[in-house]
């Protein structure tokens, strides 16, 4: 096997060659334009008025009505509450995922306990289980618990994920050397203090990546919130689908809502795009 070359493998950061042809920049620009166009559209249409938008050809340049249309969104659906709900849901899921997954990841990576490998295998196996196929029972369960239409029913099922556990285990193995833990142990630290004072600081970059990905995924989640929440207590995505399916399909209104719901992830992406890309390229991301 290639074990001996593993450590010395040079990373070909400069790429395989420069001679991909003169077409590569035009090609890339085309791809980026196709990628960005619908996002541009989401922000451009609501900056115009409906009578302009209804014409052919449609407008391609922004106008000055974005804030007027955005204000209409808040009048039409309970969008303020939707935004707050989404922040609460995605924020809680992110925090609990980071905490519980790093704890479990730390245990699986560094602690010795009976049944560890078997339990790890169980964790990994559950990643194959498409949880939303249990939605009918989950729905019944949440009603029985009295949590129907409450945010907790959206938060709890994804409060700690197998993917996060495996991801954090991998990160602990990579980022927390045994020597450091030995040293801490000699200083008299207990397991939890080792986790807190030794492992956690070293895990910050990995936790940043996991946190960002978790937040964005939770923010964008749709099917389960649609089923378990209602129009008075929606997340942003549920509010958007209400908006889009109302009798008055009013493009500037619907897309103004869509734009508002997209702004938070765009901000995160603009600030942390490099980290997110790094996380994906590390192959760390489950689709």
């Amino acid at each position: 096997m290639t074990g001996s070359t593993r450590g010395s493998t040079r990373r070909s950061t400069r790429g395989s060659g420069e001679s991909s042809g003169p077409l590569r920049y035009p090609l890339l620009f085309a791809v980026v334009i196709i990628s960005a166009f619908p996002v541009y559209w989401t922000f451009m249409i609501p900056s115009r008025t409906n009578d302009v938008v209804g014409q052919l050809p449609p407008p391609f340049l922004p106008g000055g009505h974005f804030f007027a249309n955005a204000a209409r969104v808040f009048d039409t659906v309970n969008f303020g509450k939707a935004l707050m709900n989404s922040v609460i849901v995605a924020g809680s899921i992110t925090l609990s995922t980071l905490l519980f997954c790093s704890l479990a990841g730390f245990a699986f990576a560094k602690l010795n306990f009976r049944g560890r490998n078997a339990l790890l295998l169980v964790v990994v196996s559950t990643m194959m289980v498409p949880v939303q196929l249990g939605i009918i029972s989950l729905y019944i369960e949440m009603q029985e618990l009295g949590w129907g239409n409450r945010l907790i029913s959206v938060v709890l099922p994804t409060a700690v994920t197998a993917f996060g556990v495996v991801f954090m285990r991998q990160s602990v193995i990579q980022a927390v050397p045994d020597e450091l833990l030995e040293a801490g142990r000699i200083d008299g630290c207990g397991t939890l203090r080792l986790y807190w004072h030794v492992a956690l600081p070293a895990l910050r970059p990995a936790m940043a990546v996991l946190g960002l990905l978790t937040f964005m995924q939770a923010w964008n989640d749709f099917m389960w919130p649609l089923i378990v929440l209602n129009a008075e207590n929606p997340t942003v995505q549920v509010a958007l689908s209400t908006l889009a399916s109302g009798h008055y399909r009013d493009n500037t209104l619907v897309l103004a809502g869509t734009a508002l719901g997209t702004i938070p992830v765009l901000v995160i992406f603009a600030l942390f795009g490099r980290q997110i890309i790094g996380g994906i390229m590390e192959g760390a991301v489950k689709g």
């Binding site: 890339l28 980026v32 995505q237 869509t258 997209t262 795009g273 890309i277 994906i280």
Partner: peptide, 22 residues
């Protein structure tokens, strides 16, 4: 460029579908 190609992935499916339907 990398951020450009990843942009579609960070938008929500709801948003994508609303825009594409139009």
């Amino acid at each position: 460029f990398r951020m450009g190609v990843l942009l579609p992935n960070i938008t929500s499916i709801v948003a994508v579908t609303i825009v594409f339907s139009q």
